[in-house]
């Protein structure tokens, strides 16, 4: 595994920067996100970007070990979004049972 050529290191650095910029936007959405689903979408994107991040690190660091985490994360990050989705749905039903009017879910 030779050291990367100049072009490749330059490329991987740029990719990492772009990925992290995307992640930063997601964190901002996480903060701003009016409703809970918005925040879950942001979390979903962060998970995807982390997989990308590990992959780019594999290229930048020239080491295949990084890809394990990406592989595994791809599988299980799905569960957090499912759990959140179920929470969003169930919460409304609980509130209905507690006979409170459905306030537009402006607050997370």
């Amino acid at each position: 595994m030779t050291e990367n050529s100049g072009f490749l290191t330059w490329a991987s650095n740029i990719t990492l920067a772009l990925l992290l910029l995307g992640m930063l936007f997601a964190v901002i959405r996480l903060r701003l996100g009016p409703s809970l689903p918005d925040r879950v979408v942001a979390l979903d994107l962060i998970a995807a970007i982390i997989i990308g991040f590990t992959a780019t690190l594999a290229v930048a660091g020239n080491d295949a070990i990084f890809t394990n985490m990406g592989l595994e994360l791809g599988l299980i990050s799905f569960l957090s979004t499912v759990a959140f989705a179920r929470y969003i749905e169930r919460r409304i039903i609980l509130e209905k049972k507690a006979t409170r009017p459905i306030e537009r879910s402006t607050k997370g």
Binding site: S12, L21, G22, F25, R29, L45, I49
Partner: peptide, 17 residues
């Protein structure tokens, strides 16, 4: 490929925002 992947990820972030 790397740079385009990064670019799309960044666009995704922007899109969300």
């Amino acid at each position: 490929l790397l740079v385009s992947g990064g670019f799309f990820a960044c666009v995704a972030g922007l899109g969300i925002l």
